[in-house]
Amino acid sequence: MLGSGGGGDPYIGKLMGIDALRKYGPVQLVSPDEISDDCLVVISAMMGAPTVMVEKLPRGTETVDAFLALQTYLDRTIDYTTAAEAGGLNSTTPFTLAARLRIPMVDADGMGRAFPEIQMVTPTMFGIAATPMAIADEKGNASIINTMDNRWTERLARTICIQMGTTAMIALFPMTGRQLKESMVAGTLTRAEHIGETIRQARQQHQNPIEALRTVTGGCELFRGKVADVQRRTETGFTRGEATFQGTDGWDGRQLTLRFQNEHLLAVRDGKVVASVPDLITVLDAETGEPVTTEGLRYGFRAAILGIPCDPKWRTADGLALVGPRYFNYDIDYVPVEERLAEKSARAFI
């Protein structure tokens, strides 16, 4: 739901999280305003290829190894862990660490959605360094990385990750409580919990959950329709493509095109942009309310498409420079989704 079409299938992450809770007991979740300004927090995440992760499953100790390696290097007790992103495998990765080490987890993440690279998190905008970071594999290898900026972190960590077998667990962005409060997206897990609850309740009552989902996410309904065409092509290691929807259920005779690269980037309705990255564009099964990833889109699929406002931090000049439409080669200005929909005549898309 919050992955905006990307982040991969969360299946393995879900199983890991459930297993950790069963074996080690519940995880204590604290909200950012409950932690002290001078405490130390570290993000726990998985790095690598989801296609390898489905075959070489984790040992389960890698998150702990990375975390402890970083703690030893920093020579200071790390008080909390938290999440890098809200979509795919990484939304559940910190649970395995928090459960095993019995340390609390902060209800936050670095995106409020999913993005593919290390530097694409809100702390980058606040000058918070991804390093020192630790990376660990299942064999007992671990490494500490120090870099000059967060893009270099992505580059060097990716190289080590490939040598480790293209899956590794990382502990990074050591920051104080004060930095976390200022730079991270707060309340992500609570939000995800409400969303899950909404879908489940609607199903139990045999109701269509989409309107309830729109309300709970503060989103706007961009469209309802049926996939009429999907095109995909692989370019420079990314799956790019577009999906065209023909309107149904009150949107008859109209058309919406989604452009994606791992995540949905742009929604163009009747020739006009109605939502763009970094706002979330979420495609839901029109019947069940179940979110689908970009890989799951195919002809005939009936969908409701929501535009969900991103965290306000992304809506700044720094945020848009990092993950705005121009970073993904769309030469348009970012306009918040709710403003685009309010505009009488939305800008024509070139």
């Binding site: 070489k56 499953l57 040992r59 100790t61």
Partner: peptide, 14 residues
């Protein structure tokens, strides 16, 4: 056959 990998999710886990 996979140790030390895969230990987190043993056979028939799901």
């Amino acid at each position: 056959i996979g140790l030390p990998a895969t230990e987190a999710l043993p056979p028939m886990v799901d």
